[in-house]
Amino acid sequence: MDNGVQRQPEASGGSVPRDVVGDAVPSESTMAPPTGATAGCHPRRSGSGRTSDGDARAQRQSRAGMLEAAEDAFLVDRAVDGDVAAFEVLVRRYAPLMRAYARRVTGSASDADDVLQEAFTQAWRQLADLNDGSVVKSWLMKITGHRSIDLLRRRREYVPVDESYDLADVAPGPEYAAAASSQMAALRHALDRMPEGQRQCWLLKEMGAQSYDEIAAQLGISSATVRGRLARARTTLMKEMEEWR
């Protein structure tokens, strides 16, 4: 029974098989194997039976390498279907950016990692609601911002307000400080000293790329207040920076 190959009804007299209706099919000339590989697709599993342990390990590594090359939307599709391995590739891909963001907002390295775990768990549960997998990066950043603000809010219920959280545990080492420009040091310093409300607005806007309305909803303030805080934050940062020019 050879109904293994179904072909599309001939559309325009050509014989384009249904398989190749993707968006990036190379032309005939580029379809040749690059290094004299033989035809066929080299199934690792030969007809003879089970794979050896070594083969299985190589296979896993090879698959991990292939997943890492895959695009966000593709990994999202797989993850929505339940593939944890695909989701893990997304986690590794965006954890550094999300961690950097959460550290700035929460001011603490350990809180930031708590935020990341919460954010990824939420993302896994809600991934099917994401209509366009190619925007998963900004979607993850939005969740990270939300979770960071939530954590600050929760923490405030237990800790006196005037107890400050310094960034000592995330401060870069001396080798880094030496390489950084004095302007960047000034920016860090100015950010750290900024009133928290302004800093949150600025971070949600500049790192989280959120809109005024989104920031307003998240912080429970009006859009006009967000605008005002952002304007003051920018003015302060510009002044501090200009002093270092």
Binding site: P43, R44, D77
Partner: peptide, 10 residues
């Protein structure tokens, strides 16, 4: 995933 050169998506 047991075949080379292909990744299954949706």
């Amino acid at each position: 995933d047991t075949m080379e050169g292909v990744l299954i998506g949706k």
